[in-house]
């Protein structure tokens, strides 16, 4: 145990850093995707609703490991070999970010859609009756209330996304799990290695969810 920490500790910490980097990148783009498809799910336009629903259904219906292989190997192959004439290649970080953003984005879209729909219809009607446009009413009245109810679910989704980065070890991104595999291969100390890795995840996620609870409490003031 001590040997792993002294010899491989630095390496594992760097790998944890990469895990966090991938998580943050994924979440950033997932928020954008989630916002777009979430709003498309609630506007009064059949076409938008259907596009949003199809996107969510496809992503939810495909395991992330399949999505990862598809984005990392399948998409470049499609452009370079099937269509031909391209020489596209994605780094593992790029492919990983795309995967996380799509996957987490679909769930975020559902959270945002449900959050907006949970706000009483009367709030929108009252805002519109004063002459506010749909966009103004959404921004100033409906979304602020929806976001409050979304926060706990968001935090949960962030944690799931952080854990999902471990799946991306399959496309060779040197995040925590991938690095730990190498450590185990070098030392043969699987019990110690995976215990340390588990504890590392546990610490980060605990810190994350505790500080998120604090934010949640601060936001609910004045309710």
């Amino acid at each position: 145990m001590i040997k792993i920490i002294t010899v491989y500790g630095g390496m594992l910490l760097v790998a944890l850093g990469r895990t966090l980097l991938l998580t943050l990148l994924g979440l950033f783009f997932a928020c954008i995707i989630g916002m777009i498809f979430g709003i498309m799910g609630v506007v009064k336009n059949r076409a938008c609703n259907i596009i949003s629903q199809i996107f969510v259904d496809i992503i939810r219906g495909v395991p992330m490991i399949v999505l990862a292989f598809f984005v990392y190997f399948g998409v470049p192959y499609f452009f370079n070999t099937i269509i031909g004439g391209f020489s596209i290649s994605l780094t593992a970080l790029q492919a990983g970010t795309i995967c996380l953003a799509l996957n987490c984005g679909a769930y975020m879209a559902e959270i945002i859609r449900a959050g907006i729909q949970s706000v009483d219809k009367g709030q929108m009607e009252a805002a519109r009756s004063l002459g506010l446009t749909y966009g103004m009413a959404m921004r100033k009245v409906v979304l602020p209330q929806a976001i409050r109810t979304m926060i706990p679910t968001f935090i949960n989704q962030f944690i799931i996304t952080l854990k999902d980065t471990s799946i991306l070890s399959v496309i060779g991104f040197p995040e925590l799990v991938n690095t730990a595999k190498n450590v185990q291969a070098n030392t043969f100390m699987s019990f110690q290695t995976w215990a340390i890795v588990g504890i590392m995840y546990l610490i980060v996620i605990t810190i994350l969810s505790r500080s998120a609870k604090r934010v949640e409490r601060r936001l609910s003031v004045g309710r």
Partner: peptide, 22 residues
Amino acid sequence: INHVRENIGMVFQHFNLFNNLN
């Protein structure tokens, strides 16, 4: 319709005050 509504106030059965604002 937004211009028209600016001149028509409406009061609802369930008040519909904006809960996120004072």
